[in-house]
């Protein structure tokens, strides 16, 4: 194979001369992390709320929540991204769309659209997990909470959700990993996250192997860190005498 390995490209300066390729890569990493983390936090909040609503006795509320989940779960992520970025600003009422296009920098527009897209898409999946967690609890737990005089929200807050979330740490971990992987889709609207920077590196340096190996390793590091953090969460939340713990 005639491929010329050249690992020093990361230290060489970019064509415009102000920085190195390594810095490009790291700025992509930073964008990926910021984007995914903020989307994850929003997804957790929205998903928890929606998941809870799917289990409340009120029929209209649970129907509304089901519709939300089906909507965001069944449209392909890429299509959702284009809708958030290209379509929504055109149809937002009260001058909101124009404000979005004129007052925000292009970078902020991309980041905001990408973040909301990932958050809503993932929230539907989080909602399904939260619902499954709540439904996996013994039915008597809700009755026991209510019977003590807790209101329904208090019953969720103190009785149902603490156990439901413990049960769903593993599936939530994989949703969290997914959001980092899915964030690569956002390069299609021009957001310079990790995957986009990787491709840019290939274009400029013509050293595709080094570039792709580098971004693969960076994604791997993210994976390992997320899994490590979730394992700590799981250990901290372990309930004595329950489910195989001691």
């Amino acid at each position: 194979m005639g491929y010329q390995w050249n690992w020093s490209i990361f230290g060489s300066t970019v064509p415009t001369g102000e920085t190195t390729y390594l810095v490009w890569l790291l700025s992509g990493l930073q964008t990926t992390i910021l984007l995914s983390l903020s989307a994850w936090l929003l997804a957790l909040a929205l998903g928890s709320l929606t998941g809870v609503l799917r289990t409340v006795p009120s029929k209209p509320l649970s129907t509304l929540a089901s519709a939300y989940v089906e909507l965001f779960r069944n449209i392909p992520l890429l299509v959702q991204l284009f809708i958030w970025y290209f379509v929504l600003p055109e149809i937002l009422p009260f001058g909101l769309g124009d404000a979005f296009k004129q007052q925000l920098s292009p970078l902020t527009q991309q980041f905001l659209s990408a973040m909301l897209c990932l958050a809503f898409f993932t929230s539907a999946r989080v909602a399904e997990q939260v619902r499954a967690g709540i439904n996996a609890l013994p039915r008597g737990q809700r009755a026991a909470g209510l019977a003590l005089g807790f209101t329904l929200p208090q019953t969720y807050r103190h009785v149902l959700l603490p156990m439901a979330f413990r049960l769903i740490v593993p599936p939530l971990t994989s949703e969290c990993l997914n959001i980092f992987k899915n964030s690569a889709v956002c390069s299609t609207i021009g957001l310079l996250e990790l995957a986009a920077q990787g491709r840019q590196l290939v274009d400029y340096t013509a050293q595709p192997y080094e570039s792709f190996i580098a971004i693969t390793l960076l994604y791997l590091v993210i994976n390992v860190v997320v899994m490590g953090l979730m394992r700590i969460v799981e250990a901290r939340a372990r309930v004595p005498g329950y489910l195989g713990s001691k």
């Binding site: 013994p138 008597g140 737990q141 009755a143 026991a144 909470g145 019977a147 103190h158 009785v159 603490p162 156990m163 413990r166 309930v239 005498g241 329950y242």
Partner: peptide, 10 residues
């Protein structure tokens, strides 16, 4: 008081 106790396990 319930058949299955329903203490809060956490």
């Amino acid at each position: 008081v319930f058949q299955h106790f329903e203490l809060f396990p956490h």
